[in-house]
């Protein structure tokens, strides 16, 4: 017995060393971007989190370069009983968290959460869930945008789309498949096939300052329609097959 090993760092003499499987870094296969310029692609998978009532995983590859990616995991808990005063409607809360690097200032996140809960207050059929609370948790797994530390615009639109998918997965009644469209730093969340706006966000000044607001909205609407089409297609296909097959939609 080794006398010097008082702290038992080496362990008993008959100990077996722990060996790990040889596993290199997983090669991520590039999503079939088909190198169409100015096309964003979206990868959707619902129901990954088993203990949440509903969840969605969204991977959005940006329009400008392959490196722009936003990975977002959304989970919906509830409706769960709320305590305290009587509420004829459900109360919605949205929490946002960066799982890996925390790059976004806390105040901005609060604003984002306020904005998102306002959007979904208008969309969820809250009357159906009295005396309860619905909690939405957003986990930003990864977001990169070349020069910038983070791109809030693409994060916001991913949030909107992710929450919608997670709510649908949870079977919570929503009035419409709400989705967001981006154009030049403007994000617009639409409902009713683009005739109504539930959320508008312009965080930074853009180059297209002179452009009319209505034409900006029109541009966002095009993006919205693409996103929504991809989401609905995924949902319908999933519902058809029942087994949640992986599904990839490349927007043209």
């Amino acid at each position: 017995m080794n006398i010097s090993d008082r702290r038992r760092i080496l362990g008993p003499s008959n100990a077996k060393l722990l060996t790990f499987d040889k596993s290199g870094p997983v090669e991520i296969e590039p999503i079939s971007s088909s190198s169409v310029p100015n096309s964003t692609s979206m990868y959707i998978e619902n129901g990954l989190i088993c203990n949440a009532n509903g969840s969605s995983y969204l991977e959005v590859t940006g329009s400008t370069s392959e490196a722009d990616r936003t990975l977002m995991l959304t989970s919906v808990y509830g409706p769960r009983p709320s305590r305290g005063a009587f509420n004829a409607k459900a109360t919605l809360s949205v929490q946002f968290k960066e799982v890996t690097l925390e790059k976004i200032p806390a105040g901005e996140l609060k604003e984002l959460c306020n904005f998102l809960s306002n959007v979904f207050n208008a969309v969820i059929n809250l009357e159906r869930y009295p005396k309860s609370g619905i909690d939405v948790f957003l986990s930003l797994i990864h977001s990169s945008n070349g020069s910038q530390l983070y791109e809030l615009e693409s994060i916001i639109s991913t949030c909107v789309n992710g929450i919608t998918l997670a709510l649908i997965d949870a079977g919570i009644e929503i009035f419409d498949t709400v989705s967001a469209g981006i154009y030049e730093k403007h994000i617009v969340a639409f409902v009713k096939n683009g005739t109504e706006i539930v959320g508008f966000w312009k965080g930074k000044d853009s180059a297209s300052e002179s452009e009319d607001i209505l034409s900006i909205i029109e541009q966002c609407k095009l993006d919205y329609l693409k996103n929504r089409k991809a989401m609905v297609e995924y949902l319908v296909r999933c519902n058809d097959k029942e087994d949640h097959l992986q599904h990839e939609v490349t927007k043209q």
Binding site: N51, A52, N53, S75, Y77, G78, I134, D135, G171
Partner: peptide, 28 residues
């Protein structure tokens, strides 16, 4: 719902952090 009354019903996996946890100012 999957996450309803996990403790009382004795089924389902308990959520780590419960979907509530550190969140402030929420229903949770």
């Amino acid at each position: 719902p999957k996450d309803s009354g996990v403790g009382s019903n004795g089924t389902g996996v308990t959520a780590a952090g419960g979907g509530s946890g550190a969140a402030t100012f929420s229903v949770s």
